[in-house]
């Protein structure tokens, strides 16, 4: 698959940058410093979340890249996606999936900060082999510069996207009302950005959909799905309460797509850039659909334990912290009553 022309022209790149800015700002508008601190209050859930996000997910991406024999640039893109922190959309999905929104938010907050350290380490671990192949190919084709993994730029891009996040957090402090509007706008923008990118590709590179090999579709589809599955499996093995399992699972599979776009735009040059962008676009489109279905599924299986949890919360709030409600198994079935 060759992309002859730049996938996004400068105008489109500018628009994309603005949308990323809005989305990251909106993400900040949902976060308070407390969310970072309270991450420490849920050590077990957080630890397992950390292990799935930065342990499982990059490994899944790497394995898929190897198994599907992706070209090196796309392999790097897939691994990059695997190493990303969680996005705000995962919080929304966790809410509808009857998961723990608090855990989801904490995981998003913590992973966004930790990504500064983890991403370079993980990319070095999983992607350096592919980087060497690109370097060799380029030099063989007569390019003197070659290719080195742009670690500094990646860290700088990450820092850069954290600026609007911080801005959003400040807004939430100053005016919760405007912060809500920013949040809603960002939620809407998350959909718009995907439609915008798909639309741009469709208009100017419509044959790209046809010439993209199936391995690339499969890889960008499966990385999220397998992430959901393993995230759930891991938290089941470690016996987390059901609502935490659903949060960890969604948080593992759903990555922060806008950060991927930012890093690719700011750190990679052509001809890698367009190919990597294309994979990021495919991932972002598939993940919206797959996480909707997974959310509906979790919502269904989580009804029993969620209603018990919610009832317990209200009982504790109104009857006192040490009030314990025990439900007869005959009525609620075999449900984890934690």
């Amino acid at each position: 698959m060759e992309i002859n022309q730049q996938l996004l022209n400068p105008v489109e790149q500018g628009l994309l940058a603005i949308m990323i800015l809005i989305i990251m700002f909106g993400m900040g508008a949902t976060l308070t410093p407390k969310d970072f601190r309270s991450a420490l209050e849920r050590p077990r859930g957080m630890l397992i979340g950390f292990l799935s996000q930065f342990g499982l997910m990059p490994l899944i991406a790497f394995s898929l890249a190897v198994l599907l024999q992706l070209p090196p640039a796309l392999a790097i893109a897939l691994i990059l996606i695997g190493c990303l922190p969680g996005g705000t959309t995962s919080n929304m999905f966790a809410y509808f999936a009857r998961g723990s929104v608090a855990l989801s938010i904490s995981m998003t907050a913590a992973s966004t900060l930790l990504a500064l350290v983890m991403m370079p380490i993980l990319l070095d671990l999983y992607a350096s082999g592919f980087a060497d192949r690109i370097d060799a190919d380029l030099r063989a084709a007569g390019d003197d510069v070659g290719f080195v993994m742009p670690y500094t730029n990646i860290i700088l891009s990450l820092l850069l996207v954290l600026v609007p996040v911080a801005g959003g957090m400040i807004l939430l402090r100053v005016s919760p009302d405007w912060a809500k509007t920013a949040e809603d706008t960002a939620g809407f923008m998350a959909i718009v950005v995907i439609l915008f990118l798909l639309g741009s590709v469709l208009i100017r590179h419509s044959n790209l959909f046809l010439i993209t090999p199936w391995q690339i579709y499969l890889g960008s589809l499966c990385v999220g799905l397998i992430g959901f599955l393993f995230g759930y499996g891991m938290s089941s093995l470690t016996r987390l309460p059901p609502r935490y399992k659903r949060s960890v699972s969604l948080e593992t599979g759903i990555q922060n797509g806008p950060i991927a776009f930012a890093i690719i735009l700011l750190s990679f040059r052509e001809p890698l850039q367009s190919q990597m962008l294309w994979l990021a676009i495919l991932y972002s489109s598939f993940i919206v659909i797959t996480s909707s279905f997974v959310t509906l599924f979790y919502r269904r299986i989580g009804k029993g334990d969620w209603e018990i949890h919610r009832n317990n919360l209200v009982h504790k709030r109104l009857f006192g912290e040490d009030y314990h409600t025990r439900y007869p198994e005959a009525a609620v079935g075999k449900v984890d009553q934690r």
């Binding site: 009982h315 709030r317 109104l318 009857f319 009030y323 409600t325 025990r326 439900y327 007869p328 005959a330």
Partner: peptide, 20 residues
């Protein structure tokens, strides 16, 4: 017999203080 000590009726003392 079936529901045992589960709360049946709750009386308001204050906004956040109810007696089951």
């Amino acid at each position: 017999r079936v529901w045992g000590d589960m709360p049946a009726f709750a009386t308001r003392r204050q906004a956040l203080e109810w007696e089951p």
